[in-house]
Nucleic acid binder design. Structure first.
Lengths: 226, 226
DNA sequence: CCTACCGATCGGTAGG
DNA sequence: CCTACCGATCGGTAGG
């Protein structure tokens, strides 16, 4: 311990990845694996390679750390969903396919973000909780609007909108739980299959009659809308 | 505190509902609301109306209490699913409808059992964890077998079986999370709608073509199988 | 069923 | 970025 305070800080700052990034990354992984309540600040500090009090240079509190992770993850998802919809404007069936596919894909590719965002909402209170719930409602609204347009256009059966949205989101969340990078099916395949099943489950019978038994593709659906 | 030990025990035993039942009931409710890790034995003791050491007359440990709740809940679900299938032997589509409907219905009616069984599996280790996972695999197998038979019979499209099973189970689990007794839709309605959507999502196109746009009923499906 | 109590661990602070 | 430390709370035990 010959180093004085200043030189220790300088040495720390020379690391390529900033410590703050490491803190957030390891916290996300640990919260996903053990849960927020079962993860101590000591676990995070050890994974990062610092002592506990040093964490407070980067975070305001353990709960604020969780909130930041959940907010970032949900905003990230919303952006991906908007990008997916922008690419297929037009047919509500094509849009529902794209939304569902993108949602499942994002959930698989950002598994820990998804797991923490869903599992740990009950750890937040007051404004923080309200803020995350509001963001989640934005996601739900995208599906609600899509279903509503499809029903109005007659290409979807008159299903209960919000129940159907919750069903799609629950199925997507499930994928984040069981998906394994080294599993039989890749994220893209799972996403495409769930999108196929969702579209078939709500499309009007006269439209489904036009599909074959092979999985529906987005190109097919864009054609239906044209 | 004039009571001696014996008279206190006698007084306790005079209560109508046995203390053990109260312990399990309150523990289930608290675990569902706050999570296992955030629920202290002091919370459970307070809800029951005893001191913490008295809980150990009824439980071996906090973890054993969780295991018992999860095992009971999952066994209970398996029984309900078997009862649902026994009533509709025959057509795989009718069976899939009955299984899905019963699964969603059970999850809504035994919300806290479902929430705890899914959320807290990571709190268990070793044999206890393996035991619960094995029971859950029994549930998955019932859906897998049903889908497999439907595909073989040509009444279902050749979907990926286990992915589809996970999708159905995830959607059902979701219902347990958002269902409210005082909500717009009753448990039976939600169950019937999800069962309708699941059947439509996997049924062969030639069979879906025979359905109208109104929700599919189990009677319709039994007729298809006949 | 209770009172009394314990070692371990928690999130977080003081001070440098 | 660190060492040193604190009050609160945890699951569980001893003993009656």
């Amino acid at each position: 311990m010959d180093d004085d305070l200043a030189s220790r800080i300088v040495a720390a700052k020379r690391n390529r990845r900033p410590t703050k990034t490491l803190v957030y990354q390891h916290a996300l992984d640990l919260f996903a694996a053990r849960g927020f309540a079962r993860t101590g600040l000591r676990d995070i500090a050890e994974a990062v390679g610092v002592e506990v009090p040093s964490l407070y240079t980067h975070i305001a509190s353990k709960k604020a750390l969780l909130f930041d992770l959940m907010e970032f993850g949900t905003r990230d998802l919303i952006q991906r969903l908007h990008a997916a919809v922008d690419g297929v404007s037009g047919s509500p069936l094509a849009e529902l396919f794209a939304l569902t596919r993108s949602n499942v894909l994002s959930h698989c590719e950002h598994q820990n973000q998804t797991i923490v965002a869903y599992n740990e909402i009950r750890e937040l209170e007051g404004d923080q909780r309200d803020r995350i719930i509001a963001l989640r409602r934005e996601v739900e609204a995208m599906f609600d609007v899509c279903l509503s347009r499809g029903i109005a256009a007659g290409v979807m059966r008159p299903v209960d909108i919000h129940t159907t949205t919750f069903g799609i989101l629950s199925m997507s969340r499930g994928a984040a739980v069981w998906y394994r990078e080294d599993g039989e099916l890749g994220a893209e395949e799972i996403a495409a299959r769930y999108a196929d099943q969702v579209v078939r489950s709500v499309a009007s019978t006269r439209i489904v009659s036009g599909f074959g038994d092979a999985p529906v593709s987005i190109d097919q659906l864009v054609a239906v809308g044209a």
